[in-house]
Design a binder for these strands. Sequence first.
DNA 1: CAAATAATTAGACAATTGCTTAATTAAAAA
DNA 2: TTTTTAATTAAGCAATTGTCTAATTATTTG
Lengths: 104, 104
Amino acid sequence: MNNLFRALNDATRREIVELLHKKDLTAGEIADNFNMSKPSISHHLDLLKQAELILSVKKGQFIHYSLNRTALDEVMDWFMTFKPTTPEKIESVEKPRIRIMLTE
Amino acid sequence: MNNLFRALNDATRREIVELLHKKDLTAGEIADNFNMSKPSISHHLDLLKQAELILSVKKGQFIHYSLNRTALDEVMDWFMTFKPTTPEKIESVEKPRIRIMLTE
DNA sequence: CAAATAATTAGACAATTGCTTAATTAAAAA
DNA sequence: TTTTTAATTAAGCAATTGTCTAATTATTTG
């Protein structure tokens, strides 16, 4: 959990996560999206890997990175803990079983 | 968003959030839960406040802290972005204007 | 008013972070 | 086999972070 929050505590790394959400990319393709040296990006990828937020596979001289949604789910679960406790009585009306939301 | 992740990138601060989820507490009561000086806790509270993760109200010489779930929701929303993309087939159907969700 | 209590602010310091350039490793191409 | 390409590892440095003790502010109590 510590590693997860540490990895996400950086705008560049969160942006990498967003890029990999769209599609898998090589280290170089990721670096092309930033105005920053390749070693710096490599370092960010390393931290994301330590947190298991991303996965990597080497193919020839390229390393392909992809998002690991399992780790994201883990953080989500932590946040779910803080869903407000249901009030004892909502004006004595039973809690609804479904909710209708506007999309977008 | 930056401040939110920064505030949560510390085990002590996440524990404070968990304590305040259970019930509102004064600064001193929060400090009693940690083996750490009061000024340090005060500093952590300050960072949590900057991120608007907690709220404070002064009552006499005490300061009462409580959780601000709105900010937690904001982070949750960011994570929701990474829910796996809907499969292609559904894309030939017009996007629904409302969504019916199961609660709880 | 003087002393005690709750909490913060100030200042200092070691550890960590994020970046850079230079060097290294590994694979592909000439 | 030499050169080029993709990427990482190494080393160094300024900025930020987390902690502490000491000082300060504000409130309550004797």
